[in-house]
Simulated assay, not measured.
Amino acid sequence: MQQEVSRRSNRERSDTTRAAILDAARGLFVSRGYADTSTPDIVSAAGLTRGALYHHFEDKKALFRAVAEREAGAVAATIERETANDLTPREALKVGARAYFDAMGEPGRIRLLLLDGPAVLGKKEMMAIDAAHAQRTLEEGIAEAMAPAAPDAATLSAMASLLSAAFDRAALDIADGAPSEIYVETIGTLIDRMVSA
């Protein structure tokens, strides 16, 4: 019993340390950018040692990837929470689009996921992060909305990729001050035309 408690407390300490590193890194990556953030800055902001950072993350890039994954997971969780109600597949896609725009409004998220993410990790790695979070649910939503005439897997993936790119572009424009309602309505029209084809 004592061993189990000890293992649990070690795991809890490890999780707490990891979260502190991620939180400090996120704050610095958002305020300074990836290139201008050093690992000594991160450990100083977290109140930890470099040894603690390197125990959890291979290097700064791996840490950035973990921050990006956590952000993408938070976006996906927001979309899933908002679309959990009793909605038709088409309504769920539209509500999910609005939820995406709202989630991307979190300060720093645009920079982390749409600007620095592709520059630091590369397009393929960011696509893999997206595929592990929102892309899969977007593909499922499109397939359900188009049922029973849903396209083959390759076409479905291409449709989700293109729609995702439209969401990202809209999020960038909204972050630059464009009115979100225009984009919500326009994405809704795009979804209506796509799923009724």
Rank of each mutant, 00 (worst) to 15 (best):
A77M: 06
A66E: 12
D173P: 02
S6H: 14
R169F: 10
G188S: 04
A175M: 03
R81H: 15
G177T: 06
S161G: 08
A92S: 15
L163A: 05
T88C: 07
A46Y: 13
A178H: 09
R11I: 06
E82F: 02
A171M: 09
S196T: 13
A74E: 13
A66W: 05
A150S: 11
M159S: 00
A77N: 07
A103L: 11
F101Q: 05
L53M: 14
E80C: 04
L121D: 04
K94N: 11
A128L: 13
A103R: 11
G122M: 04
F167R: 13
T189I: 09
Q135H: 12
I191N: 01
H133N: 15
V95G: 06
V95W: 07
M104Y: 08
R90I: 07
E80Y: 03
A72K: 03
I129G: 11
A19H: 04
R70C: 01
R7Q: 14
A103F: 07
R169E: 09
K94E: 12
R169C: 04
H56G: 08
A35H: 05
A66M: 08
T37I: 11
R169T: 15
A24E: 08
A150T: 00
A25R: 08
A149Q: 09
Y100N: 10
A45T: 12
G108N: 10
L138P: 00
V43Q: 03
K60L: 09
R50M: 00
R109K: 06
R70M: 04
S180I: 11
Y34S: 07
A99N: 07
N85W: 07
A74K: 12
K60Q: 11
Q2R: 15
D102H: 12
G177Q: 05
P107T: 10
A154G: 01
H55L: 10
R65M: 05
G96S: 05
R18E: 14
V95A: 11
G117K: 08
A66S: 14
A119W: 02
K94M: 10
I174G: 03
A178Y: 08
A76L: 06
F64N: 05
E139H: 03
A178R: 09
K61S: 13
A154C: 01
A52E: 14
I142P: 00
E80T: 14
D36Q: 13
L138H: 02
A72P: 06
M159L: 15
Y100R: 09
L87S: 04
A145T: 10
S38R: 10
D102A: 15
A150D: 00
A62S: 14
D15T: 09
L87D: 07
L138W: 01
L48D: 02
A19W: 02
D59P: 07
L93G: 10
L115R: 08
Q2A: 14
P107R: 06
S164Y: 10
H55P: 02
H133M: 04
A19P: 02
Y54T: 11
R193E: 00
G73W: 10
G105W: 03
P40G: 14
F57W: 04
R90S: 11
A35C: 01
E80F: 01
S31Q: 12
A19E: 14
V67H: 13
G108D: 07
K60D: 07
I142L: 15
